[in-house]
Design a protein around this nucleic acid. Sequence first.
DNA 1: GCGGGCGAAGTGTGATCTTACTTGTGCTGG
DNA 2: CCAGCACAAGTAAGATCACACTTCGCCCGC
Lengths: 216, 216
Amino acid sequence: MHGLLRARLIRGEMRPGAMVSLRTLAGEFGTSAMPVREAAGRLVSEGALEFVRNRGIRVPRMTRERLLDLTALRVFAETELVKRAAFLLPDEALQAARRADAAVNAAIAAGDAGAYMRANHAFHFGLYAAAASPVFFRLAESVWTQTGPVMSVVHASLSRLDYSDHHPRILEALARQDPAGAAEATRADIESGLDLIARAGFLTAPAGAAIDFAAA
Amino acid sequence: MHGLLRARLIRGEMRPGAMVSLRTLAGEFGTSAMPVREAAGRLVSEGALEFVRNRGIRVPRMTRERLLDLTALRVFAETELVKRAAFLLPDEALQAARRADAAVNAAIAAGDAGAYMRANHAFHFGLYAAAASPVFFRLAESVWTQTGPVMSVVHASLSRLDYSDHHPRILEALARQDPAGAAEATRADIESGLDLIARAGFLTAPAGAAIDFAAA
DNA sequence: GCGGGCGAAGTGTGATCTTACTTGTGCTGG
DNA sequence: CCAGCACAAGTAAGATCACACTTCGCCCGC
């Protein structure tokens, strides 16, 4: 239950600013409002949702400052995760990551933002799971939950040509058990994502103001 | 409500391994079990508590790996926070931090571990609040919630002479608006805390095993 | 004396109900 | 025609209830 709501955010299936009542969500999940309340509460406490009193829950709008902070966190957490995964990654996980990367490319070629979000998540977290660090894994999950909604909007508004693909570099570094190389490629991958947002003009909002994704 | 339970953990008022039922906690807080459930669920999802089915909630035992990860996270998050606070810290907050530091020293002199935990928390988070970064502030809070129980046990078992005080260096650096100096002093402060635990012999547990604080 | 099984007590979990509050709407008076 | 107010609909939040499950203790049988 809790995982379902989190997955919706990570996959970008809820837009920034979207508001929904607990009862509506409960109806979609086929349960009562209480489990939804609890799941939403957890996501509120990590900043991925916010309660609006007597209205429901809302996906927070993104500000430039928050996005930069979250990106810095992503770099820290995820470079650490791939560094550790370099020596622990089973062959089957590496091959699963190759398949996930192929799915990513297919989604880009098809211009399917939703499929891209899902495949990209599977690619990264399949690797991170091998790092055997609950602390950093949970942190990465938390950050993705917060950035999912905005990334979804960004990808949906972009041409398929804008992507510079760092995934092969990550895979090659992991295959030769090179932690530093994998970390560097991961950093490049994350920052190219931020660069994508910047080039799309989403970072021109005044300080503290919510980014206007409707302009996309 | 949610803050109350978190505060208990940060202040170290619940020992690692301690088990408590939701109904019992509800009685202590004077509410029904439901708000406690929700608060506990949030803390479970960030790793500060764990549900034991049909038994209640438990404060997780600490492993060496998890403690090292959490310490690395603390260094990252809190050096970032003080760097930003260096240019934003109001005079009154700096003076409040000086008072909090005096309370820390008084608690050490008195050998009062509980007072030390509270004053130390007030010192650090009074500074962090000025950094105006909800992302990193929440992260620091989350880490402290997870380390609170073990730190409490450690401090309660130590002589008052073992403390090397980095707080004045932090305050001086902030007073002259020196982000790098404040960050370095904060890093030293955090790592001296870890060193304290190591010297107390708590890090000799085999890999993956829960640290045995009863040996203190 | 000891071991196995049965029952009672206690637990989290989910549903339902009540309450207080916000908000949007439609009516009324100017 | 417009502004302001009152009412109604919808909401989250807390308490209470019902249920399935685990666990511990006691008792009976061997």
